[in-house]
Simulated assay, not measured.
Amino acid sequence: MKQVMTRMERTYSLQRRYINDNASVSSLKNEWPFLFNDQCMLQHYALLVEKKDAKANFLENLEVRGKELFRTLEDPAKQRSLKVAVIHKLLEINIKCVNDRENIKSNALVDLISCYFKEPISDLYHCQPQDCLVSDLCKDAPPQPFIVVIGTSIYNASKFHVYIESQLHYSTTTLAEALAYQFCSFYVLNIMYPSKCLATYEFIQRYFAGINPEGTRSSMSRKRAAVHPKVLGLVRLLSG
């Protein structure tokens, strides 16, 4: 695998040229099959965003900054400015996490973020039961990078699969690892964020991945739009 990664690093510019020519995911997979290997995908992403330890930083920020986000939104002084739905979501998460607070609570992080922005979590992931047929795992999944959670809910999940255009590309036992691969896929493959979940993805990009361009990646247009005002609002709340 080391030789493969070395070769993929040396041909990085060729891969970017192919991707930037609006190549489809299927043609890209035929031309550069190793790109979809998790190590190669993350290596490509690190080169693209010029962050050597991109994955490690992303995972660390999910843990550290995720806890900061929970602490801030659970602060009674901050809750005065929160919507009722967000407070209810915090209560639901805390009830579910009584027996295994930290591990399960970290899995609920994205749920909380999407609730704050009033965006559907169904555009980031959906749950499938343990006995679900393989052919049904990606049923109704959108074409963009998408997580299929194996379990009746995010709180009792046993495995996480990342699908792109209804094809399985990565599997892991942690949501954090699945989010890392999913997020990197958006950047590496030049895929725009879905409009229904734009604020959630942009917040993940800015707060956890540490990527802060002047605009955002919108599926409504391939041009950069202004920074999402709700994202700026939450970042200010967390830094206040």
Rank of each mutant, 00 (worst) to 15 (best):
I104N: 10
L189T: 03
N103D: 14
T6C: 08
W32N: 05
D100M: 12
F203T: 06
H161S: 08
F70D: 04
I19C: 05
A56I: 10
R217E: 07
I164S: 05
K67D: 10
S81M: 13
L59D: 01
Y116W: 12
I164K: 06
A226M: 06
K196D: 00
L90H: 08
R224C: 03
K2N: 15
R206T: 02
R7K: 15
K89L: 05
K230M: 09
Y18S: 07
H228N: 04
K89H: 04
K159F: 12
Y201P: 01
V25L: 11
R101N: 11
A54N: 04
E165A: 13
Q167N: 15
P142N: 03
L42V: 08
Q182V: 09
I113Y: 10
R101F: 14
R101P: 02
E202G: 01
E60S: 05
P145E: 02
A176M: 13
K67S: 10
N37C: 14
F183A: 06
K230T: 01
L137A: 00
I104V: 15
R7W: 15
D38M: 13
K29D: 01
H126G: 01
R101V: 00
S185V: 03
S13M: 15
L59W: 04
S166L: 11
K96A: 14
C132Q: 14
M220L: 05
L90V: 10
V134E: 11
V231E: 01
N57E: 06
H44G: 02
V227P: 00
H169G: 11
E31D: 09
L189D: 07
Y18W: 12
N156G: 02
